Simulated scan of single mutants.
Amino acid sequence: MIWFILVIAALIAAPFTIEHYRAVMSDGRRGSAPGQFVELSQGVTHFHLSGSHEAPLIVCVHGLTTPSFVWESLRKGLNGLGFRLLVYDLYGRGYSDRPDGPQNKAFFNQQLDDLLAHLEIDSPFHMIGYSMGGAIATGFAATYPARVRRLVLLASAGMAQIDTPLLNFIRDRGIVGKWLMLAAYPVQLRRGIRAEQALTTVRPNISEGQERQLMFQGFIPAVLASLKGILSRPLEGEHMALRRNSLPVLALWGAEDEVIPASAMGQLAAWNRDVIHEVIEDAGHGLPYTHTDEVLSQIAAFLPAPESDDWGHDT
C-alpha cells in the first residue's frame, strides 16, 4: 500500500517538479539574442527596433505561444517598404521575464506603455497584432486612441471566449487546473505544431522556436494566465470604441484557420462595420510566416506609403 501511495504522490507532484526544474530565463541565455533588453516596471523586456528613425513606426504584437521571431520575414519586408518596426517579446515568452499575476488588458498595456516611454516614442504609430496579439493591440488602441493611427489584425483573437469543457475546468479549478495545464499543455502544443507542419510549409526555425518555449520556466503559467486574462472574454466594447474613434482597421483571416476561424469576421463586422476584411486562401493560422507575401501586400495597400506620409496625419 505504501508503494502505491508513493507512486500516486509522485504522479501528482511530477508536473510541478518538471516546471520547477525547467531552465530559467537569465542574462546568460539572453547573451546570444538579437535586439536589446530593458528593465521595465514588470520585468525585463526583449525588443528589436529596426528601420530609419524618421520612418513611420509600426508596433507589432505577437500571439499566445510564438514570440517576436514570428515577425522576422514580415519585419524585413516592411523595413524594405520604408517603415520602422518595433517588435518585442510579451512577458512569459521569448527572452522577456516571466512575472507572476494576471495577464489581462491592463497588464499588456503596461508593458507596451513602459517600453514606448523608455524609447521616448510619443508620436502616433501603426499597430499590427497577430492572434492573441490582435486582442492586445485592440485593447491598447481602445485605451489610447490618440496614440494609434491604423490597426492591422492578423487572425485576431478577441471575437469570442475560448470555451471548451477542458479549458473551463483548467480556468476554474485553481491548483488542480494548474496541475492539469502543466501536465497536458506540452502535449497539446507539440500536437498543434505537428498539425501545422502537415498542412502547410513552415520554416524549421519557427516550429523549433515554438517548441523551445517549453524548455523555460514560466512559459506554461504565462499561457494559462493569458487564457484566464486577455483571452477570457470577447472584446466587444473595445472594438465598438475603435469604431466610435474612427480608427481605420484591416482584418486578415486565413481561410483554413482552425484556431481562429474566418467566421470570426462576422462577429467583428457586427461590432464595427467599418473594418476592412480580407481572407487569404489556403492559409491557416500562421499568416505572418506561412503567407508573408500576401500579408505584406495587404498591409502595404492599407497603410499610407512612407514616402507620401506626413508622419502624423493620414491623407
Results as ranks from 00 to 15, higher is better:
residue 66 T to Y: 04
residue 109 N to D: 09
residue 16 F to R: 11
residue 276 I to D: 11
residue 183 A to C: 15
residue 177 G to D: 04
residue 295 V to H: 00
residue 163 D to M: 14
residue 155 A to Y: 02
residue 85 L to H: 01
residue 168 N to H: 09
residue 178 K to Q: 13
residue 216 F to H: 12
residue 305 A to H: 08
residue 240 M to P: 01
residue 287 L to P: 01
residue 214 L to H: 08
residue 229 G to F: 02
residue 184 A to T: 13
residue 265 M to H: 11
residue 210 Q to M: 09
residue 143 T to S: 06
residue 144 Y to E: 05
residue 172 D to R: 13
residue 290 T to H: 05
residue 173 R to K: 06
residue 89 D to H: 15
residue 206 I to V: 09
residue 278 E to I: 06
residue 147 R to N: 11
residue 64 L to G: 06
residue 42 Q to Y: 05
residue 285 H to R: 11
residue 126 H to T: 00
residue 306 P to Y: 03
residue 59 V to F: 02
residue 53 H to Q: 09
residue 124 P to L: 05
residue 69 F to A: 12
residue 208 E to K: 15
residue 109 N to Q: 13
residue 165 P to R: 11
residue 266 G to L: 07
residue 92 G to E: 03
residue 31 G to R: 14
residue 222 A to H: 04
residue 259 V to T: 10
residue 166 L to T: 07
residue 32 S to F: 12
residue 239 H to N: 11
residue 266 G to Y: 10
residue 144 Y to G: 12
residue 218 G to H: 02
residue 238 E to C: 02
residue 84 R to D: 00
residue 292 T to D: 07
residue 106 A to E: 15
residue 157 A to W: 03
residue 266 G to W: 09
residue 126 H to D: 03
residue 75 R to L: 13
residue 68 S to D: 03
residue 146 A to G: 07
residue 112 L to H: 06
residue 247 L to M: 14
residue 223 V to I: 12
residue 173 R to N: 14
residue 4 F to S: 11
residue 278 E to R: 10
residue 14 A to L: 12
residue 203 R to A: 08
residue 188 Q to T: 14
residue 33 A to G: 05
residue 234 P to Q: 06
residue 11 L to A: 12
residue 228 K to R: 07
residue 12 I to Q: 14
residue 63 G to D: 01
residue 236 E to Q: 15
residue 274 D to Y: 10
residue 171 R to K: 10
residue 314 D to A: 11
residue 57 L to H: 01
residue 14 A to R: 10
residue 251 A to K: 02
residue 47 F to C: 03
residue 168 N to R: 13
residue 26 S to H: 08
residue 67 P to H: 04
residue 175 I to L: 11
residue 259 V to W: 05
residue 265 M to S: 15
residue 210 Q to K: 07
residue 246 S to M: 12
residue 126 H to A: 03
residue 178 K to F: 02
residue 62 H to C: 05
residue 57 L to N: 00
residue 18 I to W: 13
residue 35 G to Y: 06
residue 56 P to Q: 15
residue 82 G to V: 02
residue 177 G to M: 14
residue 304 P to D: 05
residue 86 L to M: 07
residue 182 L to D: 08
residue 110 Q to A: 12
residue 268 L to Q: 08
residue 194 R to Q: 11
residue 189 L to H: 09
residue 265 M to F: 04
residue 12 I to M: 15
residue 193 I to F: 10
residue 85 L to V: 08
residue 201 T to Q: 07
residue 29 R to F: 13
residue 114 D to A: 05
residue 263 S to L: 09
residue 212 R to Y: 06
residue 285 H to L: 15
residue 179 W to M: 04
residue 190 R to P: 00
residue 243 R to W: 03
residue 231 L to G: 01
residue 190 R to W: 05
residue 98 R to S: 08
residue 298 Q to N: 09
residue 199 L to I: 14
residue 214 L to G: 08
residue 42 Q to N: 06
residue 113 D to I: 05
residue 101 G to M: 10
residue 251 A to W: 00
residue 185 Y to R: 12
residue 178 K to P: 00
residue 48 H to P: 00
residue 253 W to N: 07
residue 273 R to H: 10
residue 19 E to G: 07
residue 117 A to M: 10
residue 224 L to V: 04
residue 52 S to T: 04
residue 44 V to E: 03
residue 136 I to P: 00
residue 140 F to H: 10
residue 69 F to L: 13
residue 76 K to E: 13
residue 60 C to E: 03
residue 197 Q to A: 12
residue 134 G to I: 01
residue 240 M to Y: 03
residue 119 L to T: 05
residue 5 I to A: 09
residue 197 Q to K: 11
